[in-house]
Amino acid sequence: MKFTVPLAIFIVLVIVLAVGLKLDPRYVPSPLIDKPAPEFSLSALDPPETTITKKSLGGRPIVLNVWASWCVACRDEHPVLVELAQKQAVEIIGLNYKDTREDAGAWLVRHGNPYRQTIFDPLGKLGLDLGVYGVPETFVIDAEGIIRHKQVGPLTLQIWREDIEPMLLRLHDATKS
């Protein structure tokens, strides 16, 4: 009886600290979830004459992957994207963020190109509108252009299976009906 109160305080403290340990302090919830993706009109990485707009990507759910040739973690993530693009009918759009055409192009040649199209954003303008703060980042955007999901940091097959794939399936079903 005498130790009930200290014991209770101790247990609560342990729980709070344990939860705190599990949290990722780098994770910042995006205010853009369930909001329309920003409008943009940027040239494609290749060929440069092609212009990509929000409208040109619309009509079906897409996975938008923000990457750069200078981004170390992108290199870890890249094989996952290449595998997904080969195995599954996933529409992956690249957003090349604050990079140069030469570096980005050479990077895709060396590591493989999983992107159906890559938006070239050398000044990070679209990146800013999307609230990008740590590449790589991956967005799921539905057929109506609404942002449904955001993943900060490298994509893994586990994250794909647990978070992104179920979301895409739901969105596909919603588009059909």
């Binding site: 919830p29 205010p31 999307l130």
Partner: peptide, 8 residues
Amino acid sequence: LVARYGDF
């Protein structure tokens, strides 16, 4: 900025 990055 809040619209893009949140209250954070």
